[in-house]
Every structure is written in structure tokens, then in C-alpha cells.
Design a protein around this nucleic acid. Structure first.
Lengths: 341, 341
DNA sequence: GGCGATCATGTTGACGTTAACATCGGAGGT
DNA sequence: ACCTCCGATGTTAACGTCAACATGATCGCC
């Protein structure tokens, strides 16, 4: 009793099928598929009709094998946890698509060393022409980064520790903008709730805040440290709220600022009357915080676009631009800042 | 003057190179690369060493061509705008990676018809074995959806309008949970700020809220409509705040709830003393809203996992499960709800 | 009217991998 | 000692596409 094998055509139609139907050679089909001009108008029509009839789809595997290029870029992300990464990824995807490249997501499942190197080694088997790395630097630093040799890479980060082209927001400029805004309002000094020490972006913002204060001859208060999460902002806020000296705080991102605002409300300290707060990122919700948050807007779209440009440049021209790309930020004044009482 | 062509070996080493170095046939290298057991331990070592030496990486294009499978799934997303999509995508990426599949991002650049069908036709050229669709239904409905024939598809949405398997959060159960929570606290009725009419998820939540009220013999207040954004929540909140009849509001997502809270604060209506508010999603920040938001937690992780499971099942077994998958939600009580004054 | 130029189209082979089959040597059974 | 079976390894061909080259027809020009 021979089991009747379902004769399901698993593969789709190929050029050969189209060619047969149109009565031409495979090569002609190829030419039509690739929009070459040296095909007779009639023939082209006939081929296109045949393609439609059989539902032809070019096989990208065969194409990639033949051409040695995948027209695809990989993006290594550490979860899509953070607001910034998400937005940047979005911009990358848009830019890549526009440039005719597909985007391959290579998630790093947890923060462990092995997960990171796991992602990197998986990379070797991926069908990508280049990679954009979207995870914070420290996670990489120690890892024996087994990046496949000769694979173009662009890093989105604020570290200068790489041999790869770097694109990022100008953290220092943004932090200066925030700090100066508060000082200009008349505050004696500005406190700072920073991001995790492992983040270069956080370190840059912190350093620049510090620098701005000393440039102006102001005392530098002790730094509070959060982990980017709103919860950690709340924790820090509870400490700050009880300190009557605190009249102005620069928070390293909007999410932490949200938690900080909650802590201040809880303790009955009015914003901005008692305490002024400036965030960083300008995520959509910041305008709807209570009170609406003054913050530093960074253009994730621009960062995404620039990193794709840099990567595709590397892929197609083989050119490295080791000159880091810095994207400027912008101060957005809302209601969470005011002169000291 | 013949320009010296840089003899850059653009292609990486292939199995043949490894085979030559290890003194075996290509097939043996293939067996080692795929972890087959029928290879002598010594030989395997020799091959592995050779691989390391030349820096061998399997060429996934050749593999895909040979096997007819890409081990890759596509995800069609309408920007990564919404919190929910982002989280679901994250879960999908994690689940897919765990199952050994790569994830291809297929962004829909704008809401226009052509952008959507653009994404779909691009799909035909993508190296994917199946697709998960993460865009709201209405955008698809009218479109001549030119989905490649025979390509496995899973839709993450609450519509039943598809021929494809569907996975989504149990919107109706969540909305009922929210509404009942408020009624149980003693509120006479519950107002509703819904999502855009184009969203099936929003429609489900609305319908279930309505149903719950009528089941309990309560009056059904007029519906307010937002677009998921915090800004639209603020707009709606300004209307609600001036209405003294409003003592309880069920908001269709947390972001809009944030804006609504701001509007209530602005008008001096205390939460929860004057007005109780329940959100939907339980995004991380909800616990740090002012006051911390009572909300409906939906498991994006589960939705992502289940949709990947469904898709891979379809890919590997060819089985469709037209039975929609519904993922349960959970009420998380915080400080934004209380009995009426 | 002959000759090369130009253009549409066809033929061949290679990209790197692996399924299917072939081969070969030794272990085990009678 | 002979035969079988099994496991390790090699050989061949094919997946779908496209560059490179080959062919043959048409055209214009001296």
C-alpha cells in the first residue's frame, strides 16, 4: 500500500517555467525581471504576461548566491526594551527599505555574555551584507567579539573604542543645552540623574553636565544613578525630593523623568515651582507628562538614516569613514522648568 | 597603463576551501557543518580546525537555494509607532530566534494604500518562508492584497475577516475586567475613551465595555474617540474633566490614559478621589504615572510567541489552525482607581 | 552590394550547498 | 573462510539566477 505522496509543488515557479510559457530563453526572462533595456517591447510584454500567469517571484536565494550580495543588512539589538533603540530601529528599517535593502533583526536575548556572542556567531550564518550594532558598548567590550572578518559594520553608540564607523546623537551638546537652560533660568546649580555607568551615552551626558557646571563656576552636586527605567527614576526622585537644596534636575532620559515627577508629586514638591526638571529624548509622551516635560529632543530618525547611509557606503564602496557622525539635539521648553522660587 | 585590479577576494571561503585544507571531500565538511553524527571524531576535529583556520561561514544563500527554505520569517509592521507593536515584535524576534528562524522586517512606510501594497509586493522578493502581519486590519481590507500564493501567513489582530490564522490578546475579556473593576468599586457607570475606529482591537474593547454595562443594567455614556496617542487622550480628557457626572473612565490604552491624567490634573480633578481611571496594556511606565495607573496587562510576549508558533507550524507542517488564538489579560490594580467619593 | 556595427536573443557554466547514491574497509555471524 | 551489514567517506547532480560569450539578423554607409 504505497502512500500517495501529495504532489505539492513546494517550490514556486522559476524562470524556466516562465521562459517555457513565453517561448523564450531563461536569459531573456532574467533580462525582463531585471529591467534591462535590450529586450524587444513585444517580447517583454509576452514575458511579463507569462510571469503574471504563473505568479513568478524571483528567488532571492539564487540571486544572492549568484551575485554574492544579499541586499540585506542585519541589526543587532538588545531587546527592543529602550525607547531609543526602538525609534532608531524604525528609522533604520525605513531608510534601508528606501535604499532597497531588507532588514534582518538579530535580537540579543538577554544581557549575558554568551547571549551577545551567540548573536554574533549567529550573525555569521545570516544572509546579510553588513551589520548595524545597536547595543550599548560595554556589553561588547569584553566579549571576544567574533565579528566575521570583512563584514561591514556600523556602531550606533557614543564610544570611540571601535574600529568601526560610529553614528550617534551628540550627547555632549544635548546635556550642555539642558544644563545651561536651567542655569540661565537662575538656578544656582543643577542636579543630575544619570543612566547606567555601562552606557557610553550616559557617561557622555554626565561628563558634559559636569563640564558645563564647572565652566560656569558652579558647584557640582553628587550624581544619582538610574538604569533608564521609570522605576529607577522614581527611586532617585524620592532621595532628591527630601533635599530642600534641590531646585533643578537634569534627568538623562524622559522615562526616568516620569518616575522622578511622580516622586516629587508624592512628596508634595511642586514642579516647576519648587523643582525644575529637564529630560532627554523627547519621546511622544513627554508633552503629556504632568507637567509637560521640558526636554532635549534627539533625532532618532536622523541617526537611523545616517547609520544606514554609512553602512551601505561601506558595503558598496568599501569605504570606511572613521570620522564619527554626530547628530545635533534641540531643547524643547515646556512647563517643567521655571526660574527658582 | 593597465589599472591594477585589487585582487580582493570578495567571497568568503567555501566548503571546497575547507575540504582542501582538511584533506576531505566537500560532503564531509557539509556533514560536520550540520552536526551529522556519521563522521569520525578525528576527521571532525580536522575539519573544524580547518574551518577555524580559514574562517569558514556557511553561505546561507546557497543553503536556502539548495533546501528551498530560508529559515526566515517576515514581519510586516506599520512603523514601530505603537507600544504594542514594538513589544510584540520584540517577542516575535525572540521566539523566532529561539526556534532557529531569522526575522525580516518589512516596514510599511506610511499609511497610504500604496505603501501597504508596496510592502506586500516587496514581500514576494523577500527571502522568507512565512509572514506575520502586524498592521491594523482596516489598512488591509480594501487593498488588493497580493499576498504570494501559498505563503504561510499569520495575522496578529482581532478581526475575523481573514483566511489566515489569527493570534491576539483577548480584548473583550480585558475590557470586561476593566469595566467590572470600576463598577465593583461602586461607580454608577463607566465612561470610555476608545481607540481609532479603524482598529479592530479598539472596536472589540469598546463593544465589550458596552456589553458589560448593559449586562449590569447601567447606562451607556457617549463614547470618546482617540487615536492611541497621549495627545489625543489629553484632548478627550479636557472634555471629560468638565463633566461632573464622570467618576470613572476606562481608557483603551495607557498612553491615552497618560494624557487624560494630565487633563484631569490641569482642571483640578483629583485622581482617584474625583475620577477613577483604568488603562490598557500595562506598559512599564504605567506604574510610574501620577498616580500609578490601574490597568489591564496584556502579554505581548505570549502573543508574539504564539504567532511564531502558529506560523512555524504552518511552514513546517502545512497545517492551518483557523481557530483564532486568544491570549488572556490580567487586571493590575494600582492607585488610579477608588470607590466614588 | 559588401562590411562592420548594432541589437535581440540564445547557450553555457558557475555561484556554494546537500540529497542521493556509490564505494570501500572492517566487524560480526555462521 | 565466506558473506552480510554498517559506518565512514567520496562522487554526482541539481537548486534558480545571471555574467560572459556566441549567434544571427538588421541596418547604414562607402
Amino acid at each position: 500500500m504505497t502512500a500517495e505522496q501529495t504532489p505539492v509543488r513546494r517550490r514556486g515557479p522559476s524562470m524556466a517555467d516562465v521562459a517555457r510559457l513565453a517561448g523564450v530563453s531563461g536569459q531573456t526572462v532574467s533580462r525582463v525581471a531585471n529591467g534591462r533595456h535590450n529586450v524587444d517591447a513585444d517580447t517583454r510584454e509576452r514575458v511579463l504576461a507569462a510571469m503574471r500567469e504563473v505568479g513568478y517571484r524571483p528567488n532571492s536565494a539564487a540571486r544572492a548566491l549568484r551575485n554574492g550580495r544579499f541586499r540585506s543588512i542585519g541589526v543587532i539589538v538588545f531587546e527592543l526594551s529602550s525607547f531609543g533603540n526602538t525609534r532608531t530601529l524604525d528609522a533604520i528599517a525605513a531608510a534601508a527599505t528606501t535604499r532597497g535593502y531588507a532588514v534582518n533583526l538579530l535580537p540579543v536575548l538577554d544581557a549575558s555574555q554568551e547571549a551577545v556572542s551567540g548573536a554574533f556567531s549567529r550573525l555569521g550564518e545570516q544572509a546579510v551584507d553588513g551589520v548595524i550594532i545597536l547595543i550599548e558598548a560595554h556589553t561588547l567590550d569584553d566579549a571576544e567579539v567574533p565579528l566575521p572578518d570583512g563584514l561591514p559594520v556600523v556602531v550606533v553608540d557614543s564610544s570611540a573604542h571601535y574600529d568601526y564607523p560610529i553614528v550617534d546623537t551628540d550627547q555632549a551638546q544635548g546635556a550642555r543645552l539642558a544644563t545651561e537652560h536651567l542655569l540661565d533660568l537662575g538656578h544656582q546649580t543643577v542636579w543630575h540623574l544619570g543612566g547606567p555607568p555601562s552606557s557610553f551615552a550616559a557617561a557622555r551626558r554626565l561628563r558634559s553636565w559636569q563640564q558645563t557646571l564647572t565652566d560656569r563656576g558652579r558647584p557640582v552636586p553628587p550624581v544619582l544613578v538610574g538604569d533608564w527605567s521609570a522605576g529607577s527614576g522614581y527611586e532617585a526622585g524620592r532621595q532628591l525630593a527630601d533635599n530642600p537644596d534641590v531646585s533643578a534636575v537634569f534627568v538623562a532620559n524622559d522615562q526616568m523623568a516620569l518616575g522622578l515627577l511622580r516622586a516629587l508629586h508624592e512628596r508634595g514638591r511642586a514642579v516647576p515651582e519648587d523643582v525644575s526638571v529637564v529630560g532627554f529624548d523627547d519621546q511622544e509622551e513627554a508633552a503629556q507628562f504632568w507637567p509637560p516635560l521640558t526636554t532635549i529632543r534627539q533625532s532618532f530618525a536622523e541617526v537611523g538614516r545616517r547609520s544606514v547611509d554609512a553602512l551601505i557606503n561601506e558595503i558598496q564602496a568599501g569605504e570606511h569613514h572613521h570620522q564619527p557622525v554626530s547628530v545635533a539635539t534641540e531643547l524643547v521648553v515646556r512647563s517643567s522648568t521655571a526660574p527658582p522660587r
